[in-house]
Each structure stands twice: as structure tokens, then as C-alpha cells.
Simulated assay, not measured.
Amino acid sequence: MTAPIAFLDGPWWPYLALLLFAVIPTEMWRWLAVAFARRLDDGSPWLEWVRLVATALLAGVVAKLMLTPPGVLAEVPLFVRLAAIAVPVATVLLTNRRVMLAVVAAEAVLIGGAWWLI
């Protein structure tokens, strides 16, 4: 059996693994995106397509979490979860697209409904 590498056997190895396998690969793509994004036109059809795909992916993840929730969220009644979707949509439409206000409204409905009913 090989002796372990002293540096990797200490308390710092999880941080090294996190840096090597999570931070560096992610940051590499972010920096490449920044380098290439400088040359993109804000109104280009390709960038509009990327925005639409990103929005659709986010909507799909939110819908999946609300309709088939994991863990403790499954204990929250369906009507509260659906209200936590409807209230921020109405907030965005009524407040001139203020997204942060909509996020706070969604959290308030979900946390308040869970606290009140569970």
C-alpha cells in the first residue's frame, strides 16, 4: 500500500478538491464567456435565443420543484406552492418588472404559508 501524500492527508484536502474540481472548471467557462461576450451585440438573435433558453430552463426547474417537491417542501400544501408562483408573477406584472420584489413576495408566500399550515 502506498503512503498517503502528507499535504492531501491533512485537513486542507477537501478545499483543494473543491478548488480543482468545482471552482477552476466553472471559472474557466465564466472567463471565456466574458472574453467572448464583449464582441456580442445586445440585440443579436443568438443572444436573444440564449436568454430564452436560460429563462425556459429556470422556469422548468421552478415548475419541477413546485409540482414534485423534494424533502420538506413536499409537506407544504399544493395551493401554497402554486400561490408562491402566482404572487410573484402578479408582482412582476404590477410593479414594472421589479424582479427582486417578486422574489421576496414568493419567499414570503411560501415561508408564511408553510409556517401557518404546518
Results as ranks from 00 to 15, higher is better:
Gly71Cys: 09
Leu94Met: 14
Arg97Leu: 11
Arg81Tyr: 05
Glu75Lys: 12
Leu78Ser: 10
Thr91Pro: 00
Ala83Tyr: 04
Ala83Trp: 01
Leu82Val: 13
Arg81Asp: 04
Pro77Gly: 06
Val76His: 05
Val80Glu: 07
Val76Trp: 02
Ala83His: 00
Leu78Gln: 12
Asn96Cys: 08
Gly71Ala: 04
Leu94Tyr: 10
Pro69Lys: 08
Leu82Gly: 03
Pro70Met: 10
Val104Met: 08
Phe79Ala: 10
Asn96His: 13
Phe79His: 13
Ala86Asp: 06
Ala102Lys: 05
Ala105Lys: 01
Val89Gln: 12
Val72Gln: 14
Thr91Glu: 01
Leu78Met: 14
Ala86Thr: 09
Leu73Asn: 03
Val99Asp: 09
Leu93Ala: 13
Val92His: 01
Thr91Cys: 11
Ala83Ser: 13
Val87Arg: 02
Pro69Val: 02
Ala90Met: 11
Val89Lys: 11
Arg97Asn: 13
Ala106His: 04
Ala83Phe: 00
Val76Tyr: 08
Val92Ile: 15
Val89Thr: 14
Val103Pro: 04
Met100Ile: 11
Ile85Tyr: 02
Gly71Met: 03
Ile85Asp: 01
Ala83Arg: 00
Pro70Lys: 07
Leu94Asp: 09
Met100Tyr: 15
Val87Leu: 10
Leu93Ser: 07
Leu101Ile: 13
Asn96Ala: 12
Pro69Asn: 05
Ala74Tyr: 10
Val103Arg: 06
Ile85Arg: 00
Thr91Ala: 08
Val103Gly: 01
Leu73Asp: 05
Arg98Gly: 00
Ala105Trp: 06
Val80Pro: 05
Leu93Met: 13
Arg98His: 11
Asn96Val: 07
Val104Ala: 12
Val99Met: 12
Asn96Gly: 15
Arg81Met: 03
Ala105Ser: 12
Leu101Phe: 12
Val72Thr: 15
Glu75Gln: 14
Ala102Ser: 12
Pro77Trp: 01
Val104Gly: 00
Ile85Gln: 00
Arg81Phe: 02
Asn96Gln: 14
Leu93Tyr: 04
Pro77Tyr: 03
Ile85Ala: 12
Leu82Ser: 03
Ala83Cys: 07
Leu94Pro: 04
Val72Asn: 10
Ala86Met: 11
Ala105Gln: 04
Pro88Phe: 02
Val76Ile: 15
Ala86Leu: 15
Gly71Val: 06
Thr91Ser: 06
Leu82Trp: 04
Thr91Tyr: 06
Leu101Val: 14
Val87Trp: 01
Thr95Ala: 10
Val103Ser: 08
Ala102Val: 08
Leu94Ser: 15
Val89Cys: 14
Ala105Val: 02
Val76Pro: 03
Ala74Pro: 04
Ala102Phe: 06
Pro77Asp: 00
Leu93Thr: 08
Val76Phe: 05
Met100Lys: 09
Phe79Arg: 07
Arg81Ser: 00
Ala106Thr: 03
Gly71Trp: 06
Glu75Pro: 05
Arg98Gln: 15
Ala74Lys: 12
Ala86Arg: 05
Leu78Pro: 04
Leu93Gly: 09
Ala90Tyr: 07
Glu75Ala: 13
Leu93Pro: 04
